[in-house]
Every structure is written in C-alpha cells, then in structure tokens.
C-alpha cells in the first residue's frame, strides 16, 4: 500500500520538478533561478524520502541530511555572491 502512495507522490514530484526546471530555464533573473534550484533540491530530498518509504529501508537517510545542508550552503553562497553585482540580464 505504501508503494502505491509513494509512486503517486513521486509522479507529483516529477511534475513539480518539471515546472521548477521551466522556471530555471525562463529566469528572468539569476535570483529566480536560485529560488528555483532551492525548491528543486527540496523536491529531490522529498523524492529520496519517497524511495526510502517505498522500499522501507533507511539506507538513504544520511543522504537527505547532506542534501539539506548542501542546499543551504549553496543557496547562501550564491545569494551572497550575487548581492554584489547586478544580475539583471539584457532583455
């Protein structure tokens, strides 16, 4: 039963990831892309969690933690880097 829930959830996450990738492609500024990749990492974390629930095994749990910390450090580093120069693109 959990497998059915997990697969349905994964399909939703796949749709979400597609939408987020569209935003990464569209921009229009790098800050939008930063927000989008931040969401993408949360979706990846949720997806790994779904997989762990599906197979009922805890081997991938440390991966969740690493992904969470990577998303934070990466997001802060890029936001700090971009706060120093304009990231507006030519139209």
């Amino acid at each position: 039963m959990t497998a059915a829930f997990a697969i349905a959830g994964m399909l939703m996450l796949a749709a979400a990831a597609a939408l987020v990738l569209y935003r990464v492609y569209r921009g229009p500024t790098n800050l939008d892309r930063l927000i989008a990749t931040d969401i993408l990492l949360v979706i990846v974390i949720a997806g790994v969690g779904m997989e762990a629930a599906w197979h009922k095994r805890a081997t991938s749990l440390p991966l969740l933690m690493v992904l969470g910390i990577v998303s934070f450090v990466g997001g802060v580093a890029i936001a700090r880097f971009m706060s120093h120069d304009s990231d507006r693109e030519a139209p």
Binding site: M12, L13, A15, A16, I43
Partner: peptide, 8 residues
C-alpha cells in the same frame, strides 16, 4: 511541493 512549484 507541487503547489510550491506551480506558485513559482
């Protein structure tokens, strides 16, 4: 997560 992506 999907709702957040749609909002984005």
């Amino acid at each position: 997560c999907l709702a957040g992506a749609v909002g984005l």
